[in-house]
Design a protein around this nucleic acid. Structure first.
Lengths: 145, 145
DNA sequence: AACAAGTGGTAAGAAGTGGAAGAAATATTA
DNA sequence: TAATATTTCTTCCACTTCTTACCACTTGTT
C-alpha cells in the first residue's frame, strides 16, 4: 500500500527515479511492468501493470458505447504507455504526458494506496497552500477527523 | 491518551526526539510505525500508524469525488510519510513538512489524545500570547468553562 | 552514584546521477 | 530503391552523494 509523498527528480531524458521507499514495495509485490497514464493531463498516474489490468477488467463490464468508458479510454490511451523499470530503478515517462503535466525536474510522487501519482513539485505546493475551506472542515468534523 | 506539552528538539538531520513521557505510552499501546503529516502545513501531526488507519477507514465512507475528502487527502498525502522510530526514540520528520512548518530546533510536542502535534516553539508561543477574544470567551462562558 | 534521557558523530551501504556505447529509426543521396 | 549517413533513443556502466543504522558520549534525574 502506497502512502505519503516521496519527492524525486526527472532527468533531461525524462527518466523518473522511483523513490527507494516505493521501490521496496514494488519489488516485493509487483513485476517490472508499469502502465503510466493520466485522466486529466495534469497528474501522471503510475500503475503496476497488474493493477491497471484490474481497471481494464472493470471497464470490460461496460458496453463499448458507454460514454464514460469511451471518454476514459480516450484520455488514458492518449497519455498512456506501458513502461519497464530500468536496472537503476528509473521509469521513462511518456513524452506527451511530460509536456502536458510539466513533469520535469523536481516532482512529488504520492502514494494512492494501489498506484502512484506524479506531480510537478511547484504545482503541488501551490495546490496545498492555504487552509482547508470552512465547508470542508465541517464535513471532516462530522466524520470525527 | 496524549495530553499536555512536552518540549523537545529536532536536530540538523531532521530527527525529532520523542519526549520520554509520550514514548512510554507509545511503547505500551502502539507499534514502531508512524504516519507523520499535516493538514495545513503549519502544524505537523504524528499518528501511531493504527490511528491513521482509522482515519483512512472513516474517509473510505466518502465518495472519491467528495471535495472535502479530496482536499484532505491532497494535503495529507503531500506532507505525509510513513516513518519508523529509531533505537534512540527519534523520528525523522519529512523534509517538505519540516520546511513548510519550520520544524527545527526547539519544538512543542502537544498531546491531542490519539495523536501528537508538533509546532515550532516560537510560533506556538506567539499564538498563545495575549488574551482570548471576546467572542471566544463568550462561547466558553456559555458552556460554563 | 546509578540509571534514564537526550545528543552528536561516523562509516558502510544504499540511493541517486550522469554519461558513454550500442541499437534502432529516420533521413539523405546516388 | 538501396546503401549509407545522421540522429535519436535506450540500455548499461561507473561514479558520487547522501542516508540511516549504530555506537558512544553527555547531561539530567532520582
Amino acid at each position: 500500500m502506497f502512502r505519503g509523498n516521496h519527492p524525486t527528480r526527472v532527468d533531461e531524458k525524462g527518466r523518473l527515479k522511483v523513490p527507494a521507499e516505493f521501490k521496496r514495495t514494488l519489488d516485493e509485490k509487483y513485476g517490472q511492468q508499469f502502465y503510466i497514464t493520466s485522466r486529466d493531463g495534469k497528474v501522471a498516474e503510475i500503475y503496476p501493470f497488474e493493477e491497471w489490468q484490474r481497471i481494464e477488467e472493470r471497464l470490460a463490464k461496460l458496453s463499448n458505447f458507454n460514454p464514460a468508458k469511451k471518454a476514459f479510454l480516450m484520455r488514458t490511451n492518449y497519455y498512456g504507455q506501458q513502461v519497464e523499470m530500468d536496472a537503476q530503478g528509473r521509469l521513462l515517462m511518456p513524452q506527451v504526458l511530460r509536456e502536458a503535466a510539466e513533469i520535469k525536474g523536481e516532482v512529488a510522487v504520492m502514494g494512492m494506496l494501489t498506484y502512484l501519482e506524479v506531480r510537478n513539485m511547484d504545482l503541488a505546493r501551490a495546490q496545498v497552500e492555504g487552509p482547508l475551506s470552512a465547508e470542508d472542515e465541517k464535513t471532516l468534523d462530522e466524520l470525527g477527523i
